[in-house]
Every structure is written in C-alpha cells, then in structure tokens.
Amino acid sequence: MKNCRARISIDYDKCVGSRICTAIAPNVFVLNGDSQAAVTNVEGDALETIKMAAEACPVSAITIEETAE
C-alpha cells in the first residue's frame, strides 16, 4: 500500500523540529537545513502511516489533503 494520493503541507511557523514525523514515516519526512520537517517523497510510506505522523505532531504542523484518484 504505497500509493498515497495526498497533498502534504507543513506549517513552518508551527514546526518545532520534534522529529516525531521523521520517526513515524521516515520515507516521507526528512529534516531540512533548519532541522524542520520536509517532505521528500509523498509516496514513501502508506497513507495510514502518514496520517499517524500528522496526528502525532505535537504542534499540529502537518496537514494532509487527500486528493481524488
């Protein structure tokens, strides 16, 4: 189940670099040069895993918008 059809956005005024998303969905989220989250591959992990990462974010900085097939 690697076909994720979603748009992921990160609010950089909120992201604190907790690294929780990079631990939960390491094939989607990586750290950028400011040690904040960045999306490297939107299809890297299952949609369910990405949603779990977004929910686990302590500052709700990740928004997932599911797109139509």
């Binding site: 909120k14 690294r19 500052v59």
Partner: peptide, 19 residues
C-alpha cells in the same frame, strides 16, 4: 500572529504537555 515563540522549547524536547 504569527508567533513562533520558544516558550515550550524546540526540537526533540518540545514540551510533552504543551497541548
């Protein structure tokens, strides 16, 4: 707004109880 303060810290030790 915006207000990206550091009151709860930053990074891996961001305050667990902040919510």
């Amino acid at each position: 707004r915006p207000n990206a303060h550091l009151g709860f810290g930053q990074g891996i030790h961001i305050c667990l109880g902040a919510p």
